[in-house]
């Protein structure tokens, strides 16, 4: 699926967590609105058959992100995350509490896609399965679980929290979802981002993470590095690490202010 075989051997861009400008002239973009703005920037920067981009990011405060079509009023359904910052994503699905997790995003040009966008979930989640296995953690995709497998009792398609919903490609450990991803598409490409739940947050105590489910205390940086290596192998490319530039950070901060921080965006539903 991604990228097509004709792109084999190319160089993709790996964007590490943002530190802000070295001279201190720019803050990090890893605020709730800044993170969403960078992902939008990556999507709108796709041109032609531009090479894939993989980004890892952190959140400078525990944040609840709403799915694009979710109602802000539904936030009342989850009081545990009440003290947290909130942002609306441009991607679908349910709300996510970003705290003790790895957040990734991938931007892929439409011209490099050789199949339906759903395959991007499948391929990237398979790489996460293999990466977790490298750390002794066994996760499976939801569609492959036998019906007899115990499911978390709170999981329903309409749940407010993404991690209490299930779609075929979600990753599951012991009946609990530990990885979910969502997409935004344009005619030029796809932005897919997702969250891997490393451990439970006090702001979403009903969601166990990998540590609670397996006892594994995995270092996020080591896991990210291994994932990047495995994804490069799967896509037959190599990553060139290239942090956000000053210009990109400027653009992202402008998008953050004009769109993701704006009340009309948050309250659009």
């Amino acid at each position: 699926m991604v990228p097509s075989s004709s792109r084999t051997g190319e160089t993709g861009r790996l964007i590490p967590p943002d530190e802000g400008a070295h001279d201190g002239s720019q803050p990090s973009v890893e605020s709730p609105d800044g993170n969403m703005a960078v992902d939008q920037l990556l999507l709108q920067s796709i041109e032609g058959a531009s090479p894939p981009v993989l980004r890892f990011y952190r959140w400078n405060e525990p944040t609840l992100s709403l799915g694009y079509f979710q109602s802000l009023a539904d936030r009342q359904l989850h009081s545990d995350s009440g003290p947290c910052a909130i942002v609306r994503r441009a991607t679908g699905g349910g709300a996510i509490l970003h705290h003790h997790e790895i957040t990734y995003s991938v931007a892929v040009a439409a011209k490099n896609l050789a199949g339906p966008a759903l395959d991007l979930y499948r391929q990237i989640h398979q790489v996460w399965i293999e990466t977790l296995a490298d750390f002794g953690v066994s996760a499976r995709v939801y569609r492959e679980l036998p019906e007899s497998c115990p499911a978390e009792s709170a999981a329903t398609p309409e749940s407010f929290l993404c991690f209490q919903r299930r779609t075929d490609e979600d990753l599951i450990i012991s009946g609990y979802k530990i990885l979910g991803s969502a997409q935004r598409k344009t005619r030029h490409g796809i932005l897919q981002h997702g969250s891997l739940l490393l451990k439970s947050s006090r702001f979403a105590p009903q969601l166990p993470g990998i540590r609670e489910l397996t006892g594994a205390d995995i270092h996020a940086a080591a896991l990210s590095k291994r994932f990047a290596r495995r994804l490069a192998a799967a896509w037959s490319l190599r990553w060139q690490t290239e942090p956000l530039s000053v210009a990109e950070r400027d653009d992202a901060l402008a998008i953050a202010e004009q769109k993701f921080r704006a009340d009309r965006w948050l309250r659009r539903r």
Binding site: G67, Y68, A90, G92, G93, L118, T167, G180, Q183, K185
Partner: peptide, 27 residues
């Protein structure tokens, strides 16, 4: 699972966005 439609009276342009849909967490 979701669809956003334009309102009556909206001016639309060929090849430009007029609405949005969500399926399998993809907008």
């Amino acid at each position: 699972v979701y669809m956003d439609l334009p309102e009556v009276g909206t001016a639309v342009t060929a090849g430009e966005e007029m609405g949005e849909v969500e399926s399998v967490k993809a907008v």
